[in-house]
Design a protein around this nucleic acid. Sequence first.
DNA 1: CCTACATTTGCATCGTTGTTGCATTTAAAA
DNA 2: TTTTAAATGCAACAACGATGCAAATGTAGG
Lengths: 144, 144
Amino acid sequence: MKPIDILNETHLKRTSCREGILKVMLESNEALSENEIRERLEGNYDRTTFYRSFKTLEENHIVHKIIIDASLTKYALEEQYLEIGPLHSEKETTSMHAHFHCQQCNTVKCIPLKDCPTPVLPEGYLIDHFELIVKGTCQLCNLN
Amino acid sequence: MKPIDILNETHLKRTSCREGILKVMLESNEALSENEIRERLEGNYDRTTFYRSFKTLEENHIVHKIIIDASLTKYALEEQYLEIGPLHSEKETTSMHAHFHCQQCNTVKCIPLKDCPTPVLPEGYLIDHFELIVKGTCQLCNLN
DNA sequence: CCTACATTTGCATCGTTGTTGCATTTAAAA
DNA sequence: TTTTAAATGCAACAACGATGCAAATGTAGG
């Protein structure tokens, strides 16, 4: 899937900022921070434009924000827009994924979970959804 | 357990700011934001002092920070220092707890989890620990 | 293809959160 | 009580993110 297709599909205007962000994200197989995206982007955009673009993409369920801690926020494409990457090649239809944060190389990846039981909470709590953040060492860092 | 006891036990100086923060947190059965704590606090402290106090309490494993999203950070006492609250009365020795965020009243609570399986990740990932954030409606809001 | 209109962008400005350096004050050990 | 290491308050700074407004741009309709 290409940036333009995604924007058309969601009835968003195809502006160069949005296209650029999506292009960078489609080429990456991990979640990226605002700065990581900006570095790989061709054009130069105002911070405001950048934030507004993310907001729009988020509201239209194209990307989602992953907050690891106060100083580490990353963005990832929604699963349906991912095309490549070894982790997603099996085309499973998992509704649930974890956010894996490698404490060594500081990368964040969405990891599809095969069987993830809904946590059991005490009586009276109504669960809308849950988020799972896993911290540790990624495959690449484990090899070294 | 009293604020002073906690500070003595961890060999921290008993300053009025630390004592105040711990007093407020011991009296609450939910996680509190910086502002919520400041409002309930008697003295008036500089923001810097406040942040440094939290940092010290965190480093000494007395409280932990819970980041729900970019504009909602709360602090909770470590389980061992909690004394009251219906949710903790059973004195289970759970190593794992979820952070429940009520989307209606915006409160955050630590919920002990009875059986929480470690998520299964693809080959090569080494898990240090994981965090579970559950969003939904709390007991109190469900009654209304 | 051109026009009109709604949307998006860039800029200036503001607010919040959190950090750092430094001089002063305070807690606690001697 | 004295000493000293730690904590505090203040000023300044940096990063993140939001808002209002004028200018630029994308797109639908003719």
